[in-house]
Amino acid sequence: MSVCDKTTRLIAAAMGRDLEPNEARFLKEHAAGCAACREHLAAAGAVTGMLKGLVPAEADTPLGFGDRLRDRLLDRSGRRNWYGYLPTIRFRPMELGLLAGLLLCALATVGFFYFNEEHPQPLLLTSKEVSTETPLSIDLEYLAVHPIREVAVTIELDAGVKFHSDYAEVAAARSHTWTGKFTEGMNSIPFMVTVEKPGTWQIRTRADFGGWRHEHLITLTSTGKMVTMAQYQLPKHRI
């Protein structure tokens, strides 16, 4: 190692303020007689001053850095959907709980007003209990505000119920459609059924006239000997 090479190492130590007193003395003496090392020492001194804060300890990234990064992250995550561009909102558990609570309150309020409002419900028209030994007579009643020339009333039975009729084909049928006309005022369509098996059965009827569908639901609950009949008028609706 030449003397000047040794000086280079000492100058490096001087840059870090790590020079021993004897090394400092050697460097000073050598530099006094060596122009190159003297210049080197001077340059190193200037550089040491410049190094500090050569870049700030914290620096802002260039404009657009964040956008470009997000773009690349979206590419890598495969989430380049329309919702990927929406700002993401994250919540702490407490905030999430509060939000859930508020949502529940809102739902409860809506529910309260909804269920307190009057909604069309099935209307119980008649209810009676009769023996299963005799046929059960049922009247379907319809109010017509003006004469209706053509009306079709369809009656459909569950498996445990049969039409009571002298006509074998009617008695064997599971559904029957009555066609006719209505006069102004109350119109009655009577029919008879027998309940053949114990259990709960239904009869559904529909009549289309005046642009509305009128429906009835008849429930028959048979114990074997007695049958309880309840007839409901369902809310009519547009057809």
Partner: peptide, 13 residues
């Protein structure tokens, strides 16, 4: 760094 500066000392004088 000191070696590099020695070769380019004229920059800093």
């Amino acid at each position: 760094l000191s070696e590099l500066i020695r070769k380019r000392r004229s920059y800093f004088l």
